[in-house]
Every structure is written in C-alpha cells, then in structure tokens.
Design a binder for these strands. Structure first.
Lengths: 288, 288
DNA sequence: ACTACGGTATTCCCTTTTGGAATAGAACCG
DNA sequence: CGGTTCTATTCCAAAAGGGAATACCGTAGT
C-alpha cells in the first residue's frame, strides 16, 4: 500500500531520493518498495538511469491506474470524513506541484500556530473530491462557477534554464534566441509556450525540440539538470534562482492569465477552521 | 491494503469468519483488520450483531469506493500482465458468487492437473478488465457480441428456505403460498421473482416483505439463517439442499433464461493454457 | 583520465506490524 | 438452559518495514 504511494511519488519526482522525501521515507526504503512491486508484477516499471528513474511502458500504464485507484481511496476517506466533519477540521484539495514546492514547506508554521485545527490534504482528482473539500487549490484564470477564488501567485512566469546550458548554446539576449534551445513542456498545460511567444511577438513558435512531461515537478527537475528551457511560475523556483542552480536569461518571461488560486465554495458556511487557514494562507502569500 | 480486501470480503459474506475463509486468514486477523480500519477512519463501518456484521451507512459508502479502487488496481495488474502474457498463462474474470461457491472449491484439481499453467483471477468489474481477460464468467442469456459462450449451469432455479421457516408459516404446497413469506432478493438481478411468478401464473406478485442484498452470497446466507425465501440456482446450494440446511419446498422453482456462462473472445487466437482450462471447465460442469 | 557528484542498490540490524491459536464472551435457537 | 455460532481479546511467533551506512555506477567537468 505504501508501496503504491511510493510508486506515484517516484513517477512524479523522477528520482527515488526525491520520492523518499515526499513520502517521508529514506531512499533505501523507496528502492526496496519499488523492487518489491516490480517483483510481484514481474515487470520492470522504471529504467534505472544515473540521472534518476524513468518509467517504462509498463510503468506508465501501471502508474496511471494506480493514480486512479488511490484517488478513489482518497475520495472514500474524504467522503466518510465529511460525515463527521467538526467545525475545526479542514479538508483541502491541493495540486501536487503546489503542495510539494510551496505549501508543505511552510505548512508546519500553520500547524504550530493552530494545533487545534485538523487539516486533511487530498491531492488526487476525483469527481466528488472537489465537492467534499472545504477549499481547493486550482490552476486557471480565477473564475469557477460557485467558487469564491483568491489569487495566490503564478502570473509571473519566468523562462529558466541552467547557466551551463545557456552559455553553451551562445547565450540568450532576446526571445528569438529561445528557438535554438530544447524546451520543456507539460502535457496538461501546453499553452505556456505559445503564450510566451505571443507575449514577445514571435508569431509561429517552433522550437528546436520539445520534451514533454506529465508532471510539473519533472519539468522543473529537467530544467535544473540542464535538459532544456522551461517556463515556470517564478515563485516555484525562487530557491533555485537565488542559489544560481537556475538562471532567468535576460529576465525573459511573461505575465500569464493562468495562475494558482485558492477557492472555497460560495454556498457553504465558512467554518472556523477553514477561516483560520484561509487567513493564514493569504498572509503567507503576501509576505514570503 | 489486505485490510481493504478483508473489508470487501466482510461486505460480501456478512460475517467475519466467512470473510476470513475467503481471504485465507483467520477470523482473528479479520477482526483486527476491521478494527484497524475503523480506528484509522474514526467511524464504525459495521454494526456487530450476533448473526454477523451488518454495514453502517458509512460502511456502505466506504465499501462502494473501496471496491472501485481495488477494481482499478486489479485492472492495472491485468493490464500489465497482458503485456507479458505467455501462451501458458490464462487470465479469467470470475463473478464473486461463482468463484466462491463453485469454481474455487474445485479449482485445486485443475491446478494439480496442470501445474504449468499460470491462472490469474480477476473478480471486480472495470471497463477494460473484460477486454484483457482471456475468459469471462457471465450471467445472462448467452448472447454477447464478439464472444463465444458456453452454458455452465444456473437455468434450474430453486425456491429455497430453511425447514424451520417453512413449517413455522404453515408449509408451502403451491406457489401461491409464497406470498405469505418474506422474500430475499438481489439488487442487480431483481427480475427473478417476477420470472418465478410468471412461471407459476401468479400474475402480480406482491410478497409480504422483501429484503434486498447487494451480493448474491448474502442472499444465500440470509436464506440459510432463515430470514426468508430465496430463488437460487440449484447448483449453488447443492450442498445445503443435501445436508438439509436448506429445503426446496414442493420442488418449486422455474427454468430461467438467465444463467451462468463462460465466454471467450471470438477474434482472439486460443492459446494452449486457455484451451486446457476451457476443456476442464466444461468437463467439470458435465460430471459433478 | 580522473575526480566529484548525484543517483541507485545492498547489507545489517532494529522495530513494528501482521497473523495464528486459544480463549473468553455474547446472542440466538430449540 | 445447554449448544451453536458468532465476535473480541490475549499472547506469542514470524515477517515485513524502515533507517544508517556503504557499495556501486554513470555522467560531467576539469
């Protein structure tokens, strides 16, 4: 069971050590779980490379199903916990990328501040999971029917890559130069590069080569390991930009209409636990 | 994880001890698993009665979701095992009621006969699970598009109940007498009682009281514990009829158009493992 | 070519969990 | 009121899970 969670974590992080952190285990445990799964299925799920684990065909299929299954289990738990919701419990639906790179690192502060509030996280998407949640983190333009949305961050999108990569291909002065590079993209939000092109008046944008990933964390990871250029909300790579592991050549980027929001249902009374979280969240976004 | 399987087994059997047998554990282990689940969810899933465990509202909801989740996992496994199918492996989709009461008890004979054949059972229903299966046990009239179907048994439906129940309410001479009894029914195949009524020219059949169950094994179990009369394929309660735990008053029953069939896809080449199983299955049905 | 680095696999060892046998207890039935 | 048929609990052995340390392997940069 934890093996399945481990599996998904690996799929999202692309490395066993990264996954280990995400599920609060050691890399050794993760490795063993993966091996256990592969043995019981009799199939290799990930190909071992020195840069991490890359899913095999079977792995991709299996991961897809396992994600659905865990989503269903999560929905089950959410559903029954909705039956006994106390005013001090909060059920949140969090996008993995936000949870990993933004919310969880600072959530411990909230937990310390409000030990009496019981916060439950949900990360997979199912039909009714969004319905039973008290608050949902979303990506989009800020309009959802029946939802009251607060902007968090993410409109400020930066073009990023490693210094080594950029200098090797002759540097980037203008957006035009990007055409020479491999670009990294995300399956579910493929519009980003055309938004970038539009913002810089590039017209038809046909990059040298595109690599697509199923998870945004993989896009970021690929950028860090120098595989190409990525468009990422600046806030999500703040650490890397400050430490120099990533650079933002020529300050290129654009203002996106799509960003990260936190929504709460309009029709439902706001219970005190949710109110406290909501307030904390907005404050945290303002003053980082 | 096994806890979830245990949960479903309990839901299907209505007793912890029965479930224990179904999942190859002891009753003690089952009890502990259930308690563990309930504690981690903070909700009672089953009400403890001295005649077994009956699901609570929360329990029913949870079971429903868990079934979907496990179906998904099963589909995952089936999917990837389809990728590496050897000619000596067979993937079967089995209806729980058949698996429990008919197939598994005699399957060990097949396993002894053909140790080289790797048989994989699947019991939950998912869209593609039926597609990847080599053979499927079905309930119906024998016509499925693209499937070649062999009749197994189940057309001979008997009216059954405990001797105690029947004598208490004054015995049953004709089908008319059934009206005085509580009847047991199955959600997914509710037509049975009207078929029975039609076969005996009863016209509008309005029984005294009806109890409905989500699983056919619960119907049988309820009949055995004297809760009412049930219509059951005779082959599925052969043991009980012979031992007298159930009786078939006045030999009442009817010939149903719906029965149990085994189907294999028409378009697919029949691999040797499947051929062997198929042959064994038909022989087993003939000579019990 | 060599070293530093970032990753995975493996070994050893301890802790926790799991599962079975036996037993106790509760409800129902005749 | 015994007998039967359930569940809950206790005790104990076995197995799985998980962490720390270490070995190992491929790549990148000098």
């Amino acid at each position: 069971m934890t093996a399945l969670r481990v599996l998904l974590a690996i799929a999202e992080h692309g490395t066993a050590s990264g996954a280990a952190e995400a599920v609060n285990l050691t890399q050794s445990a993760v490795s063993k779980h993966l091996r256990g799964l592969e043995e019981s299925l009799g199939v290799a799920l990930f190909a071992r490379g020195s840069r991490g684990l890359v899913p095999t065909e079977a792995g991709r299929i299996y991961v897809k199903h396992v994600r659905l299954a865990l989503a269903e289990l999560e929905a089950a738990a959410a559903h029954i916990s909705a039956l006994k919701a106390s005013p001090w419990s909060v059920r949140l639906h969090v996008l993995p990328i936000i949870g990993d790179r933004w919310l969880l690192p600072r959530f411990s502060r909230f937990a310390e501040l409000h030990p009496e509030i019981d916060v439950q996280f949900t990360t997979f998407v199912t039909a009714d999971t969004a319905e039973t949640a008290d608050g949902v983190f979303r990506f989009g333009e800020g309009q959802w029917a029946g939802q009251c949305a607060d902007y968090l961050f993410g409109r400020d999108v930066a073009l990023v890559g490693t210094a080594a990569l950029v200098s090797r291909l002759g540097g980037i002065q203008t957006a035009e130069d990007v055409r020479r590079y491999t670009v990294l993209d995300h399956f579910q939000t493929p519009l980003r590069w055309s938004e970038f092109a539009a913002a810089h008046g590039l017209g038809e944008f046909k990059p040298n080569h595109t690599i697509r990933f199923g998870f945004y964390s993989l896009v970021i990871r690929a950028a860090i390991s120098g595989q190409g250029l990525a468009l990422v909300p600046r806030r999500l790579v703040q650490d890397e930009l400050e430490s120099g592991r990533l650079i933002n050549p020529a300050g290129l980027g654009f203002q996106s209409r799509n960003a990260y929001w936190f929504t709460i249902p309009e029709d439902r009374p706001v219970r005190p636990g949710l109110a406290a979280f909501h307030k904390w969240l907005l404050a945290e976004v303002q003053a980082p």
